[in-house]
Design a protein around this nucleic acid. Sequence first.
DNA 1: TATGAATGAGTCTTCATTCAT
DNA 2: GATGAATGAAGACTCATTCAT
Lengths: 197, 197, 197, 197
Amino acid sequence: MSEGTRRRRDPEARRLEIVTAAAELIIEIGVDALTHRKVAARAGVPLGATTQYFATLDDLREAAIGALAAEIEARIDETRRAVVVEGVTPAGLAKLVHRGLTDARAIQADRAVVTAAVHDPRVRQFARLWSDEIVGFIAPVHGVDRARAAAVFIDGVLWHSQIHDEPLDEELIRDALAGILTPPPASPSASAAAASA
Amino acid sequence: MSEGTRRRRDPEARRLEIVTAAAELIIEIGVDALTHRKVAARAGVPLGATTQYFATLDDLREAAIGALAAEIEARIDETRRAVVVEGVTPAGLAKLVHRGLTDARAIQADRAVVTAAVHDPRVRQFARLWSDEIVGFIAPVHGVDRARAAAVFIDGVLWHSQIHDEPLDEELIRDALAGILTPPPASPSASAAAASA
Amino acid sequence: MSEGTRRRRDPEARRLEIVTAAAELIIEIGVDALTHRKVAARAGVPLGATTQYFATLDDLREAAIGALAAEIEARIDETRRAVVVEGVTPAGLAKLVHRGLTDARAIQADRAVVTAAVHDPRVRQFARLWSDEIVGFIAPVHGVDRARAAAVFIDGVLWHSQIHDEPLDEELIRDALAGILTPPPASPSASAAAASA
Amino acid sequence: MSEGTRRRRDPEARRLEIVTAAAELIIEIGVDALTHRKVAARAGVPLGATTQYFATLDDLREAAIGALAAEIEARIDETRRAVVVEGVTPAGLAKLVHRGLTDARAIQADRAVVTAAVHDPRVRQFARLWSDEIVGFIAPVHGVDRARAAAVFIDGVLWHSQIHDEPLDEELIRDALAGILTPPPASPSASAAAASA
DNA sequence: TATGAATGAGTCTTCATTCAT
DNA sequence: GATGAATGAAGACTCATTCAT
């Protein structure tokens, strides 16, 4: 019970603590500011533990980004399932996106990974994968091009929330998605051209 | 003043060289990897010059980000003027955005500043300003909400280009902007169409 | 003793594996680069085994050098016996020395121990012992001084082989040993005695 | 005059202090045991100074070995000149070698470089060079083969002095060199056999 | 004023050694 | 006894910052 106890013996748990601490820090201070010392302090483990479990800082970074990626992947899966309930409609998607904006952690995780992706090709795979997955469950209903545009817009919404204090209204999101996903009824020739493209 | 001493050239010019080198480096290696030594090497100035003109590395970083911000600001102004010619229409905007995608430097500068903004409130002001400016010249024609949605979408397009090898088609951008900026047909048939799609 | 526990094989055998691996490593990377981890990896034993059998790394180092020393001692014994067959003559010694040059392992072991001896008085004992032993089986025939000079020369030959790609010719070795071991022509009777020995 | 003075400004002198300290340490503790900290302590400079002047420890090591090599080279030149005076005779060489044995520093430097040569091909060049140089000024008088044998013997003498407390007698060295350098007049048939071999 | 030498704090990494299991 | 997790002390190296010149 005393704090003086020096050693635990639960490698799995410890490894997880370290990765979790690293992931948190990446979200808070950015992937480039990660150090062994900060991770150790955050995880409440001795410095040596961080190098015991990860041969290099880069390995640790990779594991932490992997953990964030898994988190985001899980969130996308969840969204995919929710979409079935809500419907792949502008209103349904807007509701989910807007609800997602309240989960700061999830958005920050996403933003952190995408940011890391800019300088790291391996990480870029994740970002592309998610992009494709989101397109994947919108496309069957609205076509690939509109689905892609919607995914791009949703990405913009997430970034917006990172820069601005006030999140976007659900209504604004819904209207924009409606415009993106709905074929323009005005000039039928245009929609025909788009469909054939 | 003595002849033996190498005449110092315009201090302003040297300061600019340093800031420019720092800005380039921020784009290339990220804001966290910036060091006096790298800046001095890139600018071709002695190490001491970087500390002579900027009290701390943070000052230098700030100046460099300011320079990138000015660059982006200039580009936005340019776009604003071009919009007058092209028209604040989906096609006009799409053309400008798509053209902008070919300017890697501009996009990278934007991405670098926005990324820095996530962890630095001072920088965040810039990002918000641009957002507002873009909204500012679309809003008079399409209303604030649609203008904001369009700005968000355009942001998404820029980030898309950072992650994917293939940029988005101008057509896709145009169609999406058309949907975002064009008021819905007001008839309930639209929602019905979306539901049935 | 329980069946579930992996039966430990002969502790002596394991100790030997460790020492042997350490000796190999000392030859390859030098005595200063030895680590528990490298020894464990080379021996194919768990890390803990290296500290189980040797209280400190220095103990392990000492044991490994001892093993190399024993190896060299055995080789000297072998040489001593061979000398009986070949004859304690320049030609006989040269043949043995030259043959010995082809045994890279033996020479490297010798070089490793002698090198270690420079900084470690305990090890120096070994080097002196061998020197004395070699002198010991040459001296009865050629006298102590000449025997010592021959031993010194042979040492020089071994070092030569560590630095140069081409080993010395057996002929060159024989001629030099002949000169070293043969009394000067001052008194013809002496040289005749030596020649007939 | 106070010890508190923090900075000198004599890069050349400082660099030399560092290299000299490193060279001393290599002689004392071996090339593998060299560390920035030990060099800094020995040279009486702050830790950072050692990395200021040498990008890597390896660079420092190389510079220090280079300094030792230059020292030895100078000593060889000196010996070469002395040989002109003393004569390239067994007695002359023995006198010089024996005198050299009293210069512990020179011998240790030589031994240190040769030891380093075993694991470093670049250093090996030095060792070979010296070998060739010594052969070079003996060969004109006694022929290449005998000169080489003499050089090998002299090397053995140096190593002997590193291992044994008592240096070899000048007399012993002279007799051995005499035997090595003088053609055996005793049995012409033997030399003929050797020549034909 | 301009330069780069000087210094120590802080980074990643390796490892001997201890000791829980 | 056997194993490998735990820990902190170094070690190499980088760099912001200071300041002599």
